[in-house]
Design a binder for these strands. Sequence first.
RNA 1: GGGGGUGUAGCGAAGUGGCUUAACGCGCCGGCCUGUCACGCCGGAGAUCGCGGGUUCAAAUCCCGUCGCCCCCGCCA
Length: 596
Amino acid sequence: MYLSNQRKLNRTNICSQLDREMIGEEATVAGWVQRTRDHGGLLFVDLRDRSGLVQLVFSKKISAEALKMAERLGQEDVIAVKGLIRKRPEENINREIATGEIEIMGEEIELISPSETPPFLIEDKVNAGEDLRLEYRYLDLRRPEMLEIVKTKHQTMQAIRGFLSQRDYWEVETPILTRSTPEGARDYLVPSRLHRGKFYALPQSPQLFKQVLMASGVERYFQIARCFRDEDLRANRQPEFTQIDIEVSFIDLENFQREMEELMREIFSLKGISLPREVPRLSYREVMDRFGSDSPDTRFGLEINDLSGIFADSEFRVFSGTIADGGTVRGIRVPGGAEFSRSQLDRLEERVKEFGAKGLAWLVFSSEEVSSPIAKFLSEKEFQQLREKLEITAGDLLLIVAADYKTAVASLGQLRLDLGCKLDLIPEDSYDLLWVEDFPLFTYNEEEERFEAEHHPFTAPLPEDIELLEENPAEARAAAYDLVLNGEEIGGGSIRINNRELQSKIFSLLNMSEEEAEEKFGFLLKSFSYGTPPHGGIAFGLDRIIMLLTGRKSVRDVIAFPKTQRATSPMTKAPGTVSPEQLKELNLKTISPEEE
RNA sequence: GGGGGUGUAGCGAAGUGGCUUAACGCGCCGGCCUGUCACGCCGGAGAUCGCGGGUUCAAAUCCCGUCGCCCCCGCCA
């Protein structure tokens, strides 16, 4: 026996449409049973749809039959109810909900789809662990705060499309099945059935295609593009994520960046957030020096200081020796940090060790003296210089790392963030937007003993640094720029190379042969040989933007169906096994761990 | 690959060697209740304490291993 899909009651209004204006009218609403309150002979139902809640009333006086049915309702049953909209008695108005002034007198009720008892309650103050929420993601998404995020993401994408379309950008799709390219992240591979032993790769970003689109004369391109990177996950990193990908020909960088700032302002205004008019531009070197991060959170102080000048000739060999070996000594002054307990300081030391620092020196300043495990190695003159340089006052804590430059600033940069959080120095409702520029073109990979592109191999050097490519490539800076909001990198881009000779030079510095370059992205190079406009662009991380827009701590909260940290889906159970037939068709064999 | 945290009824959680027949709250089931909106009141069911092994007269509790989830390092042009 099959139940009919035919329904008696058809919805006339969504919950939030019901208001004072409709008192006295008849309406049919439909949705999920949030909660019932049975008073015996009088029963209330909170009905929820995506727009909100409305209260339904059932009683013998209205309809004994409807009351009887309502008494059997459970959480999350889907029902439709027809009845008169009535103003609630004055003393029973609920100011907490939008429709609190009215209620619907339940005359007819239809149970459209009953629900099992849900594994957790559908309400904003969620009481379930995240793995359970992900397994029952459809229930989790029903929670108003989650639907609000889904809606915000939709509205954001609409705003982006509107903004860019209005400015003559064209939305163009690029392939999901493409080919693996060297450098960058690990690729997700897709075996080819028609070509034994060959593989497609899912794009890490549409980078090459958007540049070909510039060679194609599209001039102004954008795409809300899915990207795939098979790397380990983090709170702000998913293996598949969405980029707002943008590229323009004949680019005027100043104007372009201003346009992108305007796009961000438009997006954040959707949630009533006004981003600052003035967007500072800081050099990579400066942000690393001051904040120890290329995506600095500038909403609070605790900046890093260079103390090498003070300790270059120190009796304390750990400091002076590090400096003599080409390293540096850097420190953070923590106002009021004298309060920290020994175990708290130990935890801070553990933290910097994670980043490769050998240790963390601490000095507690009172008005007269300095207490520190290393105090006996330091001179009165050094203390005095520290007091002056750092404007130290009584009760301050000074944390010092001596190491190579990168380790010193990176570990202190992380410490700075931890302390900012712990000491509650980060104003939640402020939004600090800034550009980071003048990135190095290359980073040196110690293990592989070669240069790697800091951004990607098509990034142009700054014009004034082109000569450095010959004598000192490590010092060459890139025409690249990141946009940073509240310490989160939300976008990054560059001016691209559109000159074959320069591109060849870069490939050779990256230790990539002409043959290899030809093999891997010959199509791009070839396209450039038929007349290519100068171009550049940017890509924004949509998920991170939505995360900031909605005040979330994890991108999992703003992706409808995210993966766990181990890159699995508790709902679909992906990744899953496949049948031997499927493997055979693809000419694939799996190797068990023992066989390795 | 590494470091840290965590796992106890459907959910959240207390309990760190015997005083526990494993609290408490929510949810669920039964009953009562005509103005609730986290309704209230009465009663009830529901737990191989993640899994495997060990120590002990005795293990949720101690030890070893293992798995899931979370945070971080590495990695992420």
